[in-house]
């Protein structure tokens, strides 16, 4: 018996996919070869996959406080690699990979 699946909508791109209640929003997106949420460590540490849930409910695994504050959490912000959908979910992407630091000259002038 597989866990119930829910429809995930990435509002930014209107991308949709199905995600089981027992897998993370990021893992299902990757498994189905969908795009939209940037993928980093997949462990709640790097903050690259940050999203805001605008509709629906998710179970939250422990994630880095350096990237999601208590106030963020109250506003539905979380890391997609630590969120497991318990209903249909609509989300907005907040995280982004920064331009490769080693390639962008201006990046070095810190």
């Amino acid at each position: 018996m597989s866990a119930p699946r829910h429809q995930i909508v990435i509002a930014d791109t209107a991308e949709t996919y199905l995600c089981g209640e027992d897998e993370t929003l990021l893992k299902a997106m990757e498994r189905l070869n969908r795009k939209g949420i940037p993928v980093g460590c997949r462990g709640g540490g790097c903050g690259i996959c940050k999203v805001q849930i605008t509709a629906g409910d998710c179970l939250r695994r422990r994630m880095s406080r350096a990237h999601v504050s208590v106030e963020d959490e109250a506003r539905g912000i979380g890391l997609a690699c630590c969120l497991l959908p318990q209903s249909d979910v609509t989300l907005q992407v907040l995280g982004q990979l920064r331009a490769p630091v080693l390639a962008a000259q201006s990046r070095w002038k810190t």
């Binding site: 460590c41 540490g45 790097c46 920064r98 331009a99 490769p100 630091v101 080693l102 390639a103």
Partner: peptide, 25 residues
């Protein structure tokens, strides 16, 4: 030199990998 950075980091791909360069904890 950074103009040859692709092969400096990943000698086979010879491409800069955004995730490798920017994901840290």
């Amino acid at each position: 030199t950074t103009d040859q950075l692709g092969r400096a980091i990943f000698f086979h791909d010879r491409q800069l990998n955004e995730k490798f360069l920017s994901v840290v904890t």
